[in-house]
Each structure stands twice: as C-alpha cells, then as structure tokens.
Write a protein that binds this DNA or RNA. Structure first.
Lengths: 213, 213
DNA sequence: ACCTGAACACCGTTCAAGT
DNA sequence: ACCTGAACACCGTTCAAGT
C-alpha cells in the first residue's frame, strides 16, 4: 500500500510526457485550425506546440488523416449538440417553426465555426470511406429533421409527402448556405450574424411555404 | 522577306520548351485532379509531367495558389456555359420549369465534375480575397436565376417577393446537394446520375411550390 | 508502453546562372 | 524572355533505439 507508483504520478497535468497526449493533440489541432486556419495544420506543428517529438503522434494516430478525422468528429458532436438543444428548446412550437429554427441553428453553427465546417465537410479527410462513423454523425441532424416533419404531418401542418425528400430539401438548402459562408464564397459570407439570420430565415420560409399541405 | 525567323519556328506543338507552357500547366493540373484526385496535385508533379523543371511554372504563376485559381476559373467557365445552354434550351418553358432545369443542370455538373467543384468551392484556394474575379464568376449562375424569376413574376408564375432571396434559396439548395455529392458526404453521393436527377427534381419541386403566388 | 532522433522521399519557393 | 540546378525550409512517415 505504501509503494504503489503506477497511478500517483499524474500530479502535473501540464506535463504531457506521460498520459493524455492523444486528447492534447486533438485540442491543439483545432486550436491551430481556429487561429491560423486550415493551411497551417501540420502534424509536425501540432507535435511541436504540444512539446513532443514529431514522431510521437504516430503512437496515437495512424496518420495525419486520423487526427483530422478526430477533429471532424468533435465538430459533428458539437453541431449535433446544438441541433438537439434547439429541438428541445422549440418543443412547444409547431413543426414548421421548429423546422425553421433547426435550419437557423445549423447556419449559425457554420457562421461561428467556419474552420470546423471546412474540416467536417471539406476535402481534408482523404479517405472518408474508411470512416463510416462520420457519415452516421452527419445523419444525426437529418434524423431530427425527419422527426419534426413526421410530427408536422401528424398535426397537419406539413404536407403528406415523402419525408426523406423534404428533409433533404431543407438540409441541402441550409447546408449550401453554410458552406458558402464557411468557405467565404458569395456576398452572403460578408453578412454579420444578425443579417445572415434574417436572410436565411427568409430563404427557409420560401421552402416551408412549399412544404405546407 | 526571306529571313523572318521569329514566327515560323512553332512547328512541333508537342515540344513546349518554348511557347505555350502556361496553358499546358493548367491542362495537366486538371488532368491530375481528375485522375488522381485533389491530394496529388503538386506544382512539382505538374511540372514533371509536362517535362519541365520544377521552377519553370514560376515564370507563369506567382505561386501554387495562382495555378489552382486558373483551374477553378476554367471550372466556373464550364459551369456557366452549361447553365447558359440550359437557359437557352428551355427558352420556351415557363419560369418554374426553367428554374427547375437550371438547378438540375448545376447538380448534374457537380456529379460529373466532382474534382472541379472541390477546387471551385473548397479550401484549396488559400487567399480567395485576392481573386474577386472568382466571386464574379460564381455570380454568373445567380444572374440567370434572377432573370428567370423576374420573367416568372412578369408572367405571374412566380410570387412577387424579393428576387434575391428567392434566387439564393434555389442556389443554396442546389449548391448544398452539389457539395454533398462532390465531397461524397451522405448517401445521396452514392446515387447514379438518373437517381440523383429524380431525387433532386423532387427537392426542387418542394422549393418551387413555395415560390408560386 | 510510450517517446526520440535520424533518415527518406517528398513539398513550395527562391535565386543565381544558363540559352 | 524563358528555363535550369542547386539550395532552403518545410512536410508526412518509418524505424531502430532509448526509458
């Protein structure tokens, strides 16, 4: 009982050398992503800033791609959390209004986390086929949309048409705006958060009008 | 008259050493892009395949980014051509149907030229701010949409609401599908051309229904 | 079990020098 | 005017060797 040395060593969490290197690499990776942008993200730089040799990350990630996938996963988790919270918050509203709020939440996320969006949906992940988990996470938002539509059909506020097509219609529109914003294409990227929200609201209204019975 | 030597030399167009290096680099760049994908596109590799030293491209492009911008510009030109041809071809139809065809043409382009779309809208172009021309080319499609909407309002087939919002609604939806397809996100990317066209048609119909008076 | 250092084969970019 | 070769400062990845 006196000489157990295996667990008591982790006194200073600021010295990674042992212990929590993997999460430290992920955190530093997205820190670089947010501050320097997407071009500055190199495995060597991440290792350097975390104070570890450039070969060390290879004990925790198969390659650079694996690190990026981990960052993307965090992004999807964050996005899904915000969407679920929106869904909860708007529980009392009718389907079209909830639908609208979900779309606005997605776009708001994209505006606030551009770099995340680039990593989540851009071409940084070379072999996405190897990571089917990612695709499932993307579907998290779709599920919320379809549930909302279903409730809308039950209460008679949404037309009794194919849910999947309707959900995809909304997701695609909202995703399109989001990517144009994240990649700073088109004038819409220069709007501030409030302007973007108003404009997006009008766009979504155009779509919702077409989904009513 | 006998000894003019300045123009008569270009006999063998297959020897780039003099002459048309710049277009050759652009062509080879997108050839690599299409065959090997987006990760394999390095300036040195382009130079190598064109049979020229790795420093030679720098006489024609300021940096790698400039080459990529040139490729993206070709992509935009191609996309705009297809959209304009669609617009011409559907001259006899009413606005909602033309609107629909324009959207389908955009998505069809994205399906057939994934790599182009990645370069045109992805994060490969580091300093897009330096190239406002690109943004103008993006707007080419938007102009067609707005014109169509205007005609629709004149003939009474489109609601008398803000054209810009309506055009953006359509562009965003269609762009969203296109990027999900180009980046192979979501199940929609696994559809073949016919399936994708049918599904997209239904999505666009949802939107058009909301744009009617 | 986890990390380091050297090594390899690549990059993008620059610059003196060649024709 | 256009191109080359060497050089520089970076990469990602591997692997023997260290603790």
């Amino acid at each position: 009982m006196a000489s157990d040395s295996s667990k008591a060593e982790k006194k200073h969490p600021e010295r990674y050398h042992h212990g929590n290197l993997k999460p430290a690499l992920i955190r530093m990776g997205l820190e670089i992503l947010v501050s320097e942008g997407t071009e500055s993200l190199s495995l060597r730089e991440v290792a350097r800033r975390v104070g570890v040799s450039h070969a060390a990350p290879y004990r925790h990630f198969a390659d650079k791609n694996a690190l990026i996938v981990s960052i993307a996963e965090e992004g999807f988790t964050l996005l899904n959390q915000e969407l679920e919270e929106t869904s909860r918050r708007t529980g009392g509203l009718k389907a079209p209004e909830r639908f609208r709020e979900l779309g606005l939440a997605y776009i708001s996320f994209a505006k606030r986390y551009k770099q995340y969006m680039k990593v989540m949906f851009g071409s940084f992940i070379a072999d996405y086929k190897v990571f089917p988990d990612l695709e499932k996470k993307v579907l998290g938002g779709m599920v919320l949309l379809e549930q909302t539509l279903q409730a809308g059909q039950a209460e008679g506020s949404i037309a009794a048409r194919d849910q999947r097509v309707m959900a995809f219609s909304c997701w695609s529109m909202v995703h399109g705006v989001s990517m144009l914003v994240a990649e700073s294409r088109s004038e819409i990227a220069r709007m501030d958060e409030v302007q973007l929200r108003d404009f997006s609201g009008l766009m979504i209204d155009n779509l919702i009008a077409g989904l009513r019975p």
